[in-house]
Nucleic acid binder design. Sequence first.
DNA 1: ACCTGAACACCGTTCAAGT
DNA 2: ACCTGAACACCGTTCAAGT
Lengths: 178, 178
Amino acid sequence: MALNKSAVVDTALDLLHEAGLPGMSMRTLATRLNVQPSALYWHFPSKQALLAAVAERVLADVAPVEAGPSAPDELRGVARAMRIAVAGVPDGAEIVALGLAAGATNPVAGAVARTCARHGGGDRAAGLTTALTAYVLGLTIEEQTHHNLAAVDPSMPRVHYDSRFDEGLEAMLAGVTD
Amino acid sequence: MALNKSAVVDTALDLLHEAGLPGMSMRTLATRLNVQPSALYWHFPSKQALLAAVAERVLADVAPVEAGPSAPDELRGVARAMRIAVAGVPDGAEIVALGLAAGATNPVAGAVARTCARHGGGDRAAGLTTALTAYVLGLTIEEQTHHNLAAVDPSMPRVHYDSRFDEGLEAMLAGVTD
DNA sequence: ACCTGAACACCGTTCAAGT
DNA sequence: ACCTGAACACCGTTCAAGT
């Protein structure tokens, strides 16, 4: 049975769930696929390109947001959908940041555009997309890094990122008056 | 002349400015310091601990923000000061995210607290700190990753992150009504 | 077209031993 | 206390050669 891109991405996601990014080397990936490491380079030009493909898979799993009663309600839903997809795979936030930097299409952009079409404020769509995306990725990168550090050093204080995420999101949506 | 922590951090920052994170290995660092790689492990328990110390140095360079006429004005200044410090060193955003995850004190927290003390809204101080910090780091990580990719593949389309940063920041401060 | 085998040029980290 | 020397167990990537 021949190797192909999507089988490689599948197995990469398996390894990520088992041991995170440090456990997913081109060599462990090749071993899992019963192939030599060099075989992967026929399908992907580099590990970064492979990770970008993983990022696109993760982004494809961002749940669509149905129409809501207000713009803040819908945008809250968009941000949470992005966070759930990205936090669902170990080191997923870092991988998705790489993917977006490499030019992957950001599903938040379309969702924000639809919200602005329904509730107005289309002139701020680009800014809102940047703000929500960078916020979700920034906080989740910190969270997943913290998780990796705490796994090695259990004396580290626990931090509750889910409630911090909601707090920060509400502050963003509320804005600052004066 | 004996080695010490701050000399190691100094030289690490030199190497980061010359070649970014990929160019700053424990081995290149040791070579630059005329020492064996293993010598570094007397001063720092791991490379991550060393990078956390680099992060604290970067965070110490966040410029303090003077009192302004309004809360949004001050918070804009806080976010920009954070961005300037972090974007000023190659791969600085990723390093600072690691530092914060490891427990470094975030200068944005104090600055936001002072702004809330002056202009009110102290109940949102924690949320605003989380929102501004994660936003700055998230966008700057994407930017610096994009920069590293474009250095290897010059056919990549350029992106202007400075204007995107301002757009996203204004959207955050404005908030979403309805 | 797709993969093997073998190598190249690196990594972070450990640890006995020196001074 | 502070560092050397040498090793261990890995990396990503390349490339001739096979099928």
